[in-house]
Design a protein around this nucleic acid. Sequence first.
DNA 1: CCTCGAATGTAGCTTTTGTTACAGAAAGGG
DNA 2: CCCTTTCTGTAACAAAAGCTACATTCGAGG
Lengths: 218, 218
Amino acid sequence: MLNLENFSPFCHLSEAGRTLLRRGLVSKECPPAAPILHKGQRISGAYFVVRGRLRVYSLAPDGTEATLYFIDPGETCVFALNSLFNDLLYPAWVQAEAETTVALISGLLFRELFAREPAIQDMTVRALSTLVFRLMAELEQVHSYKLEQRLANLLLVRASAAGELCMTQQQMAQHLGTTREVVARLLGGLVASGYVETRRGKTLVRNAAGLAGLIGKA
Amino acid sequence: MLNLENFSPFCHLSEAGRTLLRRGLVSKECPPAAPILHKGQRISGAYFVVRGRLRVYSLAPDGTEATLYFIDPGETCVFALNSLFNDLLYPAWVQAEAETTVALISGLLFRELFAREPAIQDMTVRALSTLVFRLMAELEQVHSYKLEQRLANLLLVRASAAGELCMTQQQMAQHLGTTREVVARLLGGLVASGYVETRRGKTLVRNAAGLAGLIGKA
DNA sequence: CCTCGAATGTAGCTTTTGTTACAGAAAGGG
DNA sequence: CCCTTTCTGTAACAAAAGCTACATTCGAGG
């Protein structure tokens, strides 16, 4: 049995809330690449990631994917929350990126917790808010910037402190909603400018300032 | 003094909540095209539209706009709610589309109402949820469909029951995040197919099924 | 009724992005 | 060590969307 009470919103629960939670919690182990939710699915509860990482993405009719966001440990799948409160169908796909542990709280239980626990209310609103901002930013990026700029942004934002981004070009392409060849072409340009170097399965940022400069100009 | 209590979430308030609300409510009249909020602005409270309509849009560095969504009477500006709870800066622009009355509830008051009034909690979560869905759908559209399909969708979704869409091509272009010329070209194609007719300031849908067909195919 | 401004129609050209089709290079398992 | 799989690099071509530059048309206000 996993201990959800270590996670921030749950350590401020009342005794009653804790009891409720312990009774209604289900844990689920997901191997890498396992499908978790699919579009149009009816949502049965709230999902919290305990370990690992989930990827939420949209899927075009032609099979092109685009990552919307990731859910890291301690976070919750907001779409599920969403569907829960609005009683709507799930609007995207979710897949485990790595070996992932998910805690499942039934919809009924979650609504009850929401009604009586300020910590849960707060967490819910905060999670929704954060997602709205992320989606907003993404949407703005998509129609304001060219792919090269979005790629530069991806490299800057997701690279480690050491300037390493461990993703294949295929993954980057999915993230940006484009194809591998285009990413290769653009990366080629960045390599030529001396801003990055490419390795198998990773890309090294050599000149972050240069990348940042690309984003700045219209 | 406007009467906010006629609007759905507010008619279920407790007596204490009502009193609080009456004390802290400020009303504001906005002429058409008046700027309401700008990007990066610090948010001072929650905005409810009582009359008229607000337009929320993003603005690219080069001046291209794209409408994110509208706020109709009875609805609230979720970005503002958002910024309120996360203490972030406002992420987009807002403008009055028509003569509009806005009710402003200070952040402090709103948080207090949120803490004690279930109706307000419910409304907040629901509003955020709805927005998440809209943004999701928009984002998916943007990278799954071509402009012609998105235009067809716009015509289908926003036309009146009689098949009239009263927008200039310029406005459609802004809505889709593109330019007038492109809209004119695409509309030209639709006219040639006999699906629509164009008039000054409006477009008439003549064959909704045809438009719908365009959206269906990849 | 006339004029002016706003809205629309059109054409050609450029840039960006997507597609197709391969070839070479790196990792990993047997 | 070899073979297979996955990842990467490239080039040419096609399609979509954006940009520039005008001509035209509609309608409201004088």
